[in-house]
């Protein structure tokens, strides 16, 4: 089966930098792909590129974003407008700022339906109530006339999701959908997203910095660092046997709830430095922070290699996970 979305060698260029470089990945129908990375990794820009909503200064000098038959990078504004909201939808991190504060949530949901499905006001309102029910907002008939500020953060994110799935999109892009929410609410929202994905047969691109979320909700994981894909794997493989030194570092550096480790037992494993060190790096972007860096790492950007089935890693010197005791302890 052909992939629903196929990104080939995507580069995003700003006048003074290239925050995303030669990024490739694909998503099949009904699949959840997680893109993990810290701020500055280019993951949010990638999401915006999929929606063709990049800031004006940004260009896509090379690369292809194939969505079905169409190449989104070549599509004109009108064609893209027809896709957005109908076939590809997006939800953002901040549910407060991405909803219009002076419009009732019912009207905001109805708006999408009127634009794309040409529904009448009355029919759109009916559908809006159904959608609120779908995203499990209690008493939707009453809530439909509420303004965003009358809702809690979790509720607002549900409304955002209702707007996003209103036209049954084939692809949903979720940019840090739960970062602004509390853990108990986060679990509810992720549950909802996953249920909707199954019911509507959507593909979901889940952009996050939270490894825990990735492990539990993704079918496939892409790890990004400084604009490049450094590792791709199935979640189980990634967490049991991370291959790229960056992935390993991240896993080792994060304190884990079930992992019996206290400050009196010793320091956490650190990744030294910060992502800023990747700027202007001619070789491997992670080299300045890598504990296994060798002189040759500075010569050229490492190619993605295929160490096992369904895996990709951009490090030629990767070895078994046993090299990092802390990370190894994580895998049972």
């Amino acid at each position: 089966m052909a992939a629903l979305l196929q990104v080939d060698n995507l580069t995003i260029r700003f006048p003074r930098a290239e925050p995303v470089r030669n990024l490739s990945f694909e998503i099949n129908q009904g699949e959840t792909l997680a893109i993990v990375g810290e701020s500055g990794s280019g993951k949010s820009l990638t999401a915006l590129a999929l929606m063709q909503l990049l800031p004006r200064a940004a260009q896509i000098p090379n690369g292809r974003i194939a969505f079905g038959e169409q190449d989104l990078t070549k599509l004109n504004a009108r064609g893209m407008r027809q896709l957005r909201g109908r076939d590809i939808a997006m939800i953002f991190q901040e549910p407060m700022t991405s909803l219009n504060p002076v419009m009732t949530i019912g009207r905001q949901i109805a708006e999408v339906l009127k634009v794309h499905e040409k529904l009448s006001s009355k029919a759109a309102r009916e559908r809006a109530i159904e959608l609120l029910k779908l995203v499990r907002i209690p008493a939707p008939e009453k809530r439909v006339d509420d303004y965003p500020h009358q809702l809690s953060g979790g509720m607002r994110q549900r409304v955002m999701i209702a707007i996003a799935v209103a036209c049954k999109p084939k692809l949903l892009i979720a940019d840090e959908p739960t970062t602004a929410l509390d853990v108990t609410i986060q679990a509810q929202v992720l549950d909802l997203l996953d249920t909707l994905r199954r019911e509507l047969q959507m593909a979901v691109v889940l952009i996050t910095h939270d490894l825990g979320v990735v492990a539990q909700w993704a079918d496939k994981v892409v790890v990004m660092y400084a604009g490049r894909k450094v590792e791709q794997a199935l979640p189980d493989d990634l967490f049991n046997d991370p291959l790229h030194p960056y992935t390993r570092g991240l896993l080792a550096a994060s304190p884990r709830l079930k992992h019996d480790f206290h400050y009196r037992d010793g320091a956490l494993t650190e990744i030294p430095g910060s992502i800023v060190s990747a700027v202007g790096e001619t070789g491997c972007p992670f080299r300045p922070r890598c504990n296994q860096a060798r002189a040759s790492c500075g010569h050229h950007v490492p190619q993605l290699i295929v160490p096992a089935a369904d895996r990709l890693v951009a490090c030629p010197f990767t070895t078994s996970s046993k090299a990092v005791p802390h990370a190894a302890a994580l895998s049972h």
Partner: peptide, 17 residues
């Protein structure tokens, strides 16, 4: 509610706000 890679996923433990 804390998602942990070392643990299978389970339903959201709490409803409501």
């Amino acid at each position: 509610a804390v998602p942990d890679p070392a643990r299978p996923r389970q339903a959201a433990p709490l409803g409501g706000d």
